[in-house]
Amino acid sequence: MPANTDGGVGRRIAYYRSVVRPKLTQQELANAACVALGTIRKIERGERGVSGDTLQAIADALGVDPVRLCRDRGTAHSQARDGLPALSAAIAAYDCPDDGPVRPVSELRDAVDTAVKWRLGAQYTRIVRDLPDLLPELARAYHTAADGDRAELAQLLVSAYRCADAAAYKLGAHDLSARLIELMRWVTAAAEDPLLTASVAYVRTETFFAARAHAAGLRALQQAIDMAPVPTTAVERAVRGALHMRAAVIAGRARDADAAVAHLSDAGRLAEQVTENVYYGTAFGPDSVRIHQVSVAVSLGGDHVSAALGITHEWKPPTGLAAERRSGFYIELARAQLWAGMPDSAFESLKVARRVASQHTRDHPWVREDASTLRRLRRADSETLTSFAEWCAAT
Rank of each mutant, 00 (worst) to 15 (best):
L338R: 02
A168I: 03
R375N: 08
Q27P: 00
P229Y: 00
L300D: 00
A393L: 12
T361F: 09
A238D: 03
E332Y: 10
A308T: 01
Q26N: 06
Q293P: 01
A271C: 01
E383C: 11
T312R: 04
P194N: 09
L309H: 03
Q27G: 05
A145D: 04
I58L: 11
V116P: 07
V50C: 10
L69K: 02
T75V: 14
R335T: 12
A371C: 03
Q359S: 11
R41K: 13
D303F: 07
E137V: 05
A220K: 04
M184V: 14
T114W: 12
A340F: 01
Q26I: 06
A198Y: 00
G74N: 09
R11D: 15
L156C: 12
I13Q: 08
A115N: 03
R290T: 02
R376H: 14
D147P: 01
I13V: 15
W391V: 02
A122G: 05
R11V: 12
A248P: 01
M184H: 09
D381M: 11
D72S: 11
D60L: 08
A59S: 11
E44N: 06
R119N: 13
P343H: 01
G341H: 00
A92H: 13
P85S: 11
T39K: 04
F208T: 12
G100P: 04
T373V: 15
L87A: 06
Q273A: 07
R290A: 02
G52T: 07
A247S: 07
L183N: 07
M342F: 05
R109T: 15
R179E: 14
R362E: 14
S51Q: 02
E369F: 08
A122Y: 02
N4P: 02
S177H: 05
A259L: 10
A3K: 09
A57K: 13
A267E: 07
V64T: 07
A57H: 10
V261M: 11
H304Y: 11
A210D: 09
S88M: 13
M227D: 15
V67Y: 07
G268W: 01
T54E: 10
E314W: 08
Y94M: 14
Y16W: 15
G8D: 14
V158W: 04
V261E: 14
V116N: 11
L135F: 05
R21H: 12
G100Q: 06
